[in-house]
């Protein structure tokens, strides 16, 4: 039964990390879509007949920010995987990520 507890230790880590990245990033993307619709106005949002919502530039800016964060995190993820394949690792010691030997 020792195996069960060992597997469990790994599994809950995977679950928590996957929830943050696997559900969180799509949710952030959804926030981006929502903001973009708010920013675009008109028929992008559901509205009553004849009263099309006005476009809001702030919505577009927020959408851009959301999409940028999603792309950045995915990009970092790919770099992390590739780097560990080549015996390197990603370090956040200097705030912005750098690649160094393991």
């Amino acid at each position: 039964m020792h195996t069960l507890s060992l597997v469990w230790e790994d599994l809950w880590k995977i679950t928590v990390a996957s929830l943050i990245l696997g559900a969180g990033l799509p949710a952030l993307f959804a926030v981006g879509i929502r903001s973009l619709a708010y920013g675009t106005g008109g028929d992008a949002e559901e509205h009553g007949a004849g009263i099309a919502p006005a476009p809001h530039p702030i919505g577009r800016a927020l959408a851009g920010l959301c999409f940028a964060i999603v792309l950045l995190v995915v990009g970092l993820g790919i770099v992390l995987i590739v780097a560990s394949g080549f015996g390197q690792e990603l370090s956040f010691d200097s705030i912005y990520p750098t690649i160094q030997d393991k």
Binding site: A30, V31, I33, R34, L36, A37, A44
Partner: peptide, 12 residues
């Protein structure tokens, strides 16, 4: 996703 995008037109 469905909670967040409620109110946005489906085609969008």
């Amino acid at each position: 996703i469905y909670r967040i995008t409620a109110g946005v037109a489906q085609r969008f």
